[in-house]
Structures are given as C-alpha cells and as structure tokens.
Design a protein around this nucleic acid. Sequence first.
DNA 1: CGCATATTTGATAGATTTCAATTTATGTGG
DNA 2: CCACATAAATTGAAATCTATCAAATATGCG
Lengths: 252, 252
Amino acid sequence: MAILVKPDLKLFIDRLTIRTALTNDEEGALARLPFELTTVGANQDFVRMGEYTGQAFVVVAGFVGRIDLNAAGERQITAMHLPGDMADLNSVVQPSAASAFQALSKSVILGIPHVALRRVASKYPAIAEALWRDSTVDAAVLAQWVVNVGRRDARSRIIHLLCEIACRLGVADDEQVEFGFPVTQLQLADATGLTPVHVCRITSKLRADGLVLIRNKRVTIPDWKNFSRAGDFQRKYLQMDISPNDRLRIAA
Amino acid sequence: MAILVKPDLKLFIDRLTIRTALTNDEEGALARLPFELTTVGANQDFVRMGEYTGQAFVVVAGFVGRIDLNAAGERQITAMHLPGDMADLNSVVQPSAASAFQALSKSVILGIPHVALRRVASKYPAIAEALWRDSTVDAAVLAQWVVNVGRRDARSRIIHLLCEIACRLGVADDEQVEFGFPVTQLQLADATGLTPVHVCRITSKLRADGLVLIRNKRVTIPDWKNFSRAGDFQRKYLQMDISPNDRLRIAA
DNA sequence: CGCATATTTGATAGATTTCAATTTATGTGG
DNA sequence: CCACATAAATTGAAATCTATCAAATATGCG
C-alpha cells in the first residue's frame, strides 16, 4: 500500500460538500487543518472504548469499523467507514467514545486534533453544520442496520450491506458494479449479526445464483438492479444524490 | 390524559442542559420558540417517510417511535422517544425524513418550525452544539440497538431495552425501579426484531423468574442491579451522568 | 354490553447456530 | 521464491432458538 502523494483532507472535504454548500474560505480552512498520519494493521484498534483521544480520524485508505461487544464478548460491528469518511465524527462534540474503532483491513488514517476542528467549527458555523449534517447520515445508516439485523433474513442482510457500501463508494451508477472490499467473512458476520459459517453458506449461494461474486477482496455485481432489489435496498437514505443547488446551508 | 398546565418546552430545555452548558440568554431563546400542540392517537403517524414537514417535534406526553419497514412491509422500530425528547432532532439540519414517526401510545407533541429553530441555532452556536450533541446520543442508542438485535438473545434484548428506557426516564437510580410503559408487546416485538408471540413467552418467563413485571402499561423491576446485569446493560453510553462542571461547550 | 385490540397458549416448521474437521488463502522470514 | 505459520473459507451433522400458524382468553374503549 504505497502512498504515492502527500495525503491530505481532499477526500474528506469532497464528502462534506456533497451535502453542504461551503464557501472557498471554509473549504480552505478545512484544508489547512493539521493532521497526523497513522497506518493501522487489520483488526487493530485505533480508538478504544471509553477513551478520550483528542483527535478525530479521517479514513484515507482501507476500511474501518466501529466495534461493540456484548457481555459474552461477541463482536458486533455497528458501522463501516470508507476512505473520505470521518470515522468518529461524533467525537467532535462528544469526546468520550461509546465504541471502539478498528481497522478492518490495513488502513491509513489521519488524526485531526479536536481543538483544531472545534476552532474552525466555531469560527465557521457552516462547517459545524456540515459535520452535523453528515453525522445525521451516519445515524440514518445506523437505523438501516437496525432494520437489517432486526427484520431482514441473512441473505438480504448481506446484500443490503454490499449495496450500501457500493453507493457510499460512489460506484453504484452502472449495470455491472465492481469495487474493492477488504472485509473478511468473519467481519461480514459481525456486521450482519450472523455466524461466519452462515455467511459462507449464503455468499456461496449468492455466487451460485449469479447475484454477487466476492473474491480476492473484490466484489462484482453483474446486475445492480436485480441485486439491490433482492436486498430491499433504497439508496435515498444515504443522501448521496443532492444536486448542487439543493445542498443545504443554514448558517449565514 | 388531561393537560393540567399550559405545555411548554421546559422538559426539552432541561434535557439539553444535562449535557451542554447554556447561558440564561440561550435558555430564554429556546423557551421563547413558537410551537404548535398536537395530540396523536396510538399507532398514528405524525411524520411520514420522505416527507418535508417544516417542523421538528418535541414529545410532551406519551411514547413515540421511529418506524422503518422492510420490503415485506414488516415493521422495525428504530428508536423510541420519551417526554422531553425531540423525536426528529436530525430534521433540523436534514429536513427529508428517512423514516416515519408515529405515536406508540396516545401522545402530546409540540411542533416547532424549522425556520425558528434554525434561527436560534444560527444566532446561538451553543444551541446548535447542544442539539448536535444530543443527536450523537441518539446515534449511540441506535448503535446499541444494532448490538441488541445483532448479538443478544431475545431475553437480553427485551431487558436491555427496558433498562435503556428506565435510564432515559431518569428512574433507574434505585433498587426497585418502576415506570409507566405504554408500549404493547407487538411494538416491543417490532423494536427488538422478534415476533409478538415470542415476546409474550419471554416476558412471561421474566415475570416467573421475578425479574420484571410488565402489567397495565407499567413496568416494575424488583432488583435493578440483577436486572441490568441480565440485560448486558451499561448506562454510560446514554451520557446521562455528566456533572454540571463537565458539561461541554465549544461555542464561545 | 360488545367490538376491537392485546395477550396467552400449543404445536409445528424453519432458519441459524454450534461444534468439529478440512481445505484453501495469505503473509512473513529465511 | 519457497516453507512455514497463521488466518480465512468451506463443508457436514446436530442442536437450538425463534418464527409461523391457529385458536382461546383477556382487556379496554365507546
């Protein structure tokens, strides 16, 4: 995973401006935020539960998960974060982490000091607004995850999750959809509330049915329409399709 | 459900100031927000999915739920809101509702115009911050719901939910805990991802075991410690125990 | 009092887990 | 570049939890 260019916050700023209209001034202030680059190995925590980190983490490469445990120590992944996401966005305003965060695959993350983030959020209310707005999308995703594990069968759960990821990666516009997916079946099980054994069976069946091929950390979906229908997936909740004119801004 | 005094936003303001330090000025601005009182019957929507309401709703009496559906039309309740909560808090910054909201029991709600809310949030950044902070708690609750349906058995799911409600109602400080709970077994099933039949069996067993009595829209928990342990419940994620000195405020 | 809603109970079916074992992939150091 | 160690995926059989279907009883509201 060679880093070819100096990493920056461009992906993150692009993400924010999908949903919120920011001025050049504001984007500039974001771009000048200080950060610290870290590489995290697969299955390695970078925020422990209950910790006060002093930083918020933007994902630059790799997939990252929010990890919760039940009393028996069984894992439940409660969010997946992709390049461009600020994984622990809530920490800007709520610094005590309610969950742990860990890299699902080897990842590159940028830690931005809370003090710096809060300074720009305070100086530019529209930035605070953009962050808050994006955290409402995280919440909408979370609500769909509740529906997923609560009221969908194993097959739909897996399909729905893959659809969500495809849309968030911005690759779901075509008939045939393909993207890198560095997530093991064990992690997939922990995200969908299933056992690894069952995930294996279901994914085998999905492959046999020609719905998805998951191989070599890569997902191939031959027929997106058919696939997303099978997963009961409606992309609206992701708020990814806002025309530039409809982007919001409450702040002056 | 006679309303004895003129309803106001006091409960809501009290809720916000649990976690965020607000000045008298700011509290006053909140208290002067205009609102419209509505009474909603049980199982009746007051926000439909995808709708742009122009209002955010504060619960004054009764319990309210966020309702999602799967493809088969089966319901999943993805949040429960109690008196003092702003149910669709996210709508302040994200006006298109990703889910429907409905009264679980006959409820009294106050609709506050978004324009008014946004005006005070814009004029007083600390108010925006308080709203955002409370919405991060909603998200933390949601994450626990994912754990609940994903990695806890039927018994723990029901116990955990009751613990959450008890804490949020502020009645969970004692040995014996008791509170009004106007939620049917069918709704309980829709919140926990179970069938009503199974909820019935589990609650019967919990009663037989002396863990909880749910009767007459009222919950009685004889031994809170024992009960919350059985439900794998740790209240920290609710951020209800912030000492006044530790309340946050980023805004000047 | 009577209807509609909610709860309870029983019997059966089905989905998913658990346990155990094997094969296949992946990564690291020599 | 191979060999080894480790992690991941696969398969089978049995057990368990939860759902489904159907019916009876209780409860609340007008």
